[in-house]
Nucleic acid binder design. Sequence first.
DNA 1: GATTAATTGTGTCCGCTGGACACAGTAAAG
DNA 2: CTTTACTGTGTCCAGCGGACACAATTAATC
Lengths: 228, 228
Amino acid sequence: MTELLWGKQPLPSRGPKPAVTLAAIAEVGIRIADAEGLDAVSMQRIAAELPVTKMALYRYVPGKAELVAVMSDLAMGAPPQRPAVPWRTSLYTWAMDLYDGFLLHPWLLQSTIGRRLLGPNELAWMESGISALAGSGLTGGEQFDSILVITSHVRNIAQQSTTFPGATTGLTEDDVNQSLAEILRTEAARFPHLTAALQTLAGSENQGLVFGLHRILDGLERLIQDRG
Amino acid sequence: MTELLWGKQPLPSRGPKPAVTLAAIAEVGIRIADAEGLDAVSMQRIAAELPVTKMALYRYVPGKAELVAVMSDLAMGAPPQRPAVPWRTSLYTWAMDLYDGFLLHPWLLQSTIGRRLLGPNELAWMESGISALAGSGLTGGEQFDSILVITSHVRNIAQQSTTFPGATTGLTEDDVNQSLAEILRTEAARFPHLTAALQTLAGSENQGLVFGLHRILDGLERLIQDRG
DNA sequence: GATTAATTGTGTCCGCTGGACACAGTAAAG
DNA sequence: CTTTACTGTGTCCAGCGGACACAATTAATC
């Protein structure tokens, strides 16, 4: 599996030339996932857009799970190179870059959950985030935990804001709000603080993203200052 | 759908008595998901543990997605009642309670992602979290965003720490670490800061959870103090 | 050059999934 | 007693991931 992700496949000597490549297979999968969601990606579907049949794909990848892992690391891409700036600015930009990536390939939110082996691009993203905190005085573990908190936040905001084909329930944000309003019309007594909070809700684009990001960075700042 | 989640089903007058109930169906689903993961939950499987056939289930629920939604809100349960304490302590406990819930039913991490209609229990959790910030001086939107950040963090930590049947790739944390160590043995030059951070990594149980939680709460504290 | 061994692509088959649909049985209202 | 509403069952379908045997192709070896 690690060999697949890192492209360290020993190329065979004998036998017919392969008709396709793992990268080409993954790219087709990415195209389908981008257009119709991760659920639309099936071995049949991928093979249909290549000059091979479904079963031929299993010569390049052991199973669908592994293929999705390869697709994910490929779609993630390398993190943008940014000039060296203070850690706070650097992490802010890093988070925004990450957010952009998730908007570009929303299915990554599905495919990169839970414990998994890390590919070169995902590791490069980690390296990029960690490097911002390299001279901060935090321990290695704290650096990891810090970028983990930021990643979690970015992920969940992206998950909420994006409406990507196939994966969600097909509900618009208005549907949810309308359902909530209807419920609170009859059950407001059970949820007083929630009802009150909804009165003063002025939703603007990306507000949740920057709000949470600033709170996390404020918290990190306090820790770093206490250390220094 | 809202009627399903909130149990507002108009009970019919004529016709045969239903052999089961929606709640009973959902409970069987929860038992299966707890034991074997969400992927093991199928209509066949549920029906096999009930005195009905698969197709009879569709008399109680329109489809599997809706059933999972009902299961989720039911398994979530009501948030524990806690005594009134300062907002910071209250949110800390709230986050820990949430974490415990996710460990109890790990599949909730799968089933409660993305935009969805809210059931009574999930709404009660929100109410409980919001109420901690009711007198803090934050706006309603800020209160929402605050508990959203905390929820994101708790979710992602739970996702990482739990090894629940069927859903994950079946990798242990050692597998991941070993793969990482092997990669860095040959590719350390590409990931210098990451390699350095790994040197001073002292992983202890729940460290990531409390670390991130304190950073977020520190950030909120600063905002609240600035307001007051 | 002929033979052997390794590798690729194909076709067939399987169990499983969610769900559509027609139909028979049951209970209450008229 | 008839009508009406409702429940449960059996059959059928397309699609999924994948196991497996088999033919075709190519390079290394004798």
